[in-house]
Write a protein that binds this DNA or RNA. Structure first.
Lengths: 230, 230
DNA sequence: ACCTGAACACCGTTCAAGT
DNA sequence: ACCTGAACACCGTTCAAGT
């Protein structure tokens, strides 16, 4: 909400607001993320972006090739914002920490998961994968099992972030009406009705996500006993 | 491909092509999926959609509230196209069959995963979840474990479809350049370099996906032995 | 009930021109 | 090198009017 700009701008020439710092990719991406956070995916317009930077829309095209570029940069930026956790002695905890931080970063910017529709391998994402896989190697995985588990974890986190951010983004379509949609037709959905699927009273997203991580670690690395204990 | 329209239309006035069948939601969604399949997400325009149906753009708004509606309907349609598999005696095989069919349906329409950005609980999606969860119940799951595994499976499938369709959609950005991106900096990505991450020569998407399913079933239901045997 | 025509308020992007 | 101004070819959607 409150924009925190370098104060030097305001000191330099108090009469002239904006037209301030020189336009850079850095500033463009920063402003883009702010717009996306504030108004969602369709809140980002090259014209609005230019307006927020007090610049002509066409000026952006000197620093950026296309609007898609801006979106790619914005996605990579939010992964760079959340730091990779430190390596500890417990590789399982490292995996969990990374996965949780990853999910959290995406949920803090609900527009982000929907943009993974483009191949996302900026340096920040690759660094996370490196951390994740090195933890799995410490856990004894290699070859096919390693490849399988790496993908399994990544896809689980992405899928969870995508679906959770979905009805966090669309107003009025929370889990409550979704649950009602099920109980309205118990004949069609007997199992879902009985199990309390999508019942926010019974399960919350966070703990379901954590237990899912446990199940993955148990299944891929055969440590069912340790997991049950925690 | 072949449209099956009521023949009465053609009998009525053989000289006039198109303007043919009356405009219906059904026909609109059908045409929308065709446009999406042919030209991707940005190939779908209300104006182009109208053109394909030989109708004024504004005519669509009589049958449909907004463009978002069209997208929602298109997504639900492709899930309705792939039938829910039959229930067998082997609940594990049922789970696998559903997950595979689900992923396949999305990969056949690479624009679809990116649209899960909206809460997707059309009847076709709910029917799949009902099938999935009932199989898990037959496998002995209940309560929290059931809720966890249901989400885990759904999110895994969605995440896999999303990432796989991503670089299937963007041309020139296949796994090969991605892999090169890693090996170009082995100092930064030692584990990924050594493990052959993203190396299409060593692993293919399909078998990685299948083995991931095995791991989930093993971890959630504790059947590591059965899984290893197959 | 269903569709057209004209119009509104936007888009992303190009390109010559300015400084 | 960096930015402006004008312009192009589009958008989604509304609304009165036709049949």
């Amino acid at each position: 909400m409150t924009k925190d700009e370098p104060s030097s701008v305001w000191l330099r020439d108090p009469g002239v607001r904006a037209r301030s710092t020189p336009l850079t990719r850095e500033r463009i991406v920063e402003a883009a993320v702010a717009l996306l956070d504030g108004h969602g995916i369709e809140g980002l317009t090259m014209r609005r972006l230019a307006g927020a930077l007090d610049v002509t829309p066409t000026a952006l095209y000197w620093h950026v090739r296309t609007k898609e570029d801006v979106l790619d940069l914005a996605v990579d930026r939010i992964f760079g914002a959340a730091p990779v956790p430190p390596v500890t002695a417990d590789w399982r905890e490292d995996v969990r920490a990374l996965a949780r931080a990853w999910r959290t970063a995406m949920l803090e910017h609900p527009w982000a998961p929907g943009l993974i529709g483009r191949p996302v391998l900026g340096p920040n994402v690759l660094a996370r994968t490196e951390f994740l896989q090195s933890a799995l190697v410490r856990g004894g995985l290699s070859d096919l099992g390693l490849a399988v588990t790496t993908r399994l974890l990544a896809n689980y986190v992405i899928g969870a972030a995508l679906t959770e951010s979905a009805w966090r983004r669309s107003p009025g379509a929370g889990p409550a009406p979704a649950r009602a949609h099920i109980t309205a037709d118990p004949a069609a959905y007997p199992t879902l009705t009985a199990s309390g699927h999508l019942d926010a009273e019974r399960w919350d997203d966070e703990s379901l996500f954590d237990r899912g991580l446990d199940a993955i670690l148990a299944g891929a690395c055969g440590g069912a006993v340790e997991v049950r204990g925690r």
